[in-house]
Design a protein around this nucleic acid. Structure first.
Lengths: 236, 236
DNA sequence: ACGGTAGGTGTACGGCGTACACCTGTCAAG
DNA sequence: CTTGACAGGTGTACGCCGTACACCTACCGT
């Protein structure tokens, strides 16, 4: 009878509920500890029940990615191409910052999901509408690369990646440059912060990731705009 | 006795031999099917024997990455910064093209390996030597992002990724744009090839990845050079 | 002669994705 | 009102994974 109550009380599963629960679980505990068993447990269900709603784990991941891509603001059509593209890319970045596991999940798939293709397609459309030739638009898409999807690399600041939104974030407080490494890689140390002016803690304030992202984005957009304005036509 | 012969005949294991075998195996069968068991089997050894030479699988992966990074040509010191950086990045790209699993392996680690830090450190050194301020060098490193390590994104051309250097490469021949997708994503289809002029095979010649990589690289390097020449100092 | 040690072995455990047979509640057709 | 198909949750089981731990063995310096 208790079983009946449990069964009845719990909202019925659905593909959508499975995907949302998976995204939430990955946000909380990191993608590497998202298993079919954990997810099923979270939903109060037996692992195999999930397979009635997703074909396998790979398809689950694809669905999760599409949930995130769905959070990206649609393209504005009234503004000029540069403004519209810039805003949309920053919106994509915001979406991905909410789900730190997403970049890796996207990159480790070998097939783009429909939602991603749709996103990229509309981006090309914005470029074409802004006067870009098919060829130039093509090269621009490659040049923007993953930046188009809102993520740059955080090579220096390898926090995050896992999620763990919970309690203590700074157990390895800045942790990035442990002073022995500073000696071995002086240029990186200099870059990692104001450094050196204080021989106690070598670690500076780290980087302003948002600034770095926009710096690179604008560098690319300005260079791209120059090509377009110069009437770039074919491989020079 | 046969066991003795086997034991004696086989070259003794070493960390180096383990790492090289792992790289070779990943090249051949793809990183996702590289397991401690497979690798041990390849070396004619029992799985646990590997743990006398690498601490665990994560450290194995780190070692494999360092093997690849070690294949990158050293930085030339005589040439001007732009030329030196460009050549080195293209050398990094060549190294990574030989090991298609490497980008994902690098990105999925949460700590950079010493060899990668060394590589990046020397790259910053080249910039500083070329007259870049610490700040500008910092931003430039972020702007170059993963391109610094020689890989761009192959979002449109999701072949590779696995390796399988063996026999038939074109079982899914071009496979990229299956004509139904072309209707849904017309801009991408236009970009993916000459397209449309022939209603039979929608797929064009695909992209020249090397050209795309250098296009983006030079776009960035030129933009960066302009900033440097303009005496870029701080956040504008 | 002998103890230490480096390096290969065997067994075992817990976790993973998922194939497959099964049960159960719902609902439309007869 | 019966029936039977079907959607959806269950239970068991298999083969793979990384790796802890105890062991054995050949070699080496003393």
């Amino acid at each position: 009878m208790a079983e009946q109550v449990d069964t009845l009380r719990r909202a019925p599963l659905s593909r959508d509920r499975v995907l949302r629960a998976a995204v939430a679980l990955a946000d909380e505990t990191g993608i590497e500890s998202l298993s079919m068993r954990n997810l099923a447990n979270e939903l109060g269900v037996v692992p195999m029940a999930l397979y009635k709603h997703v074909a396998n784990k790979d398809e689950l991941l694809a669905g999760m990615i599409d949930v995130i891509v769905g959070e990206i603001d649609p393209l504005e059509t009234d503004a000029d191409w540069k403004r519209a593209v810039r805003r949309r890319i920053l919106s994509a970045r915001e979406a991905l910052l909410r789900h730190p596991w997403a970049p890796l999940a996207i990159e480790s798939r070998n097939e783009a999901t429909p939602a991603i293709l749709d996103y990229l397609n509309s981006m090309v459309g914005a470029l074409r509408g802004g006067g870009f030739s098919t060829d130039l638009a093509h090269h621009v898409m490659h040049a923007m690369g993953s930046r188009m999807l809102g993520f740059s690399q955080e090579l220096f600041d390898p926090t995050r990646r896992a999620g763990r939104s919970g309690a203590a974030e700074p157990p390895p407080p800045p942790a990035a440059f442990p002073a022995e490494a500073a000696a071995a890689f002086p240029h990186l140390a200099a870059i990692a912060g104001a450094a050196a002016h204080d021989d106690e803690s070598v670690v500076g304030p780290g980087c302003d990731d948002q600034f770095e992202f926009e710096f690179a984005l604008d560098l690319l957009l300005d260079g791209i705009d120059r090509l377009r304005a110069d009437g770039w036509t074919s491989r020079p």
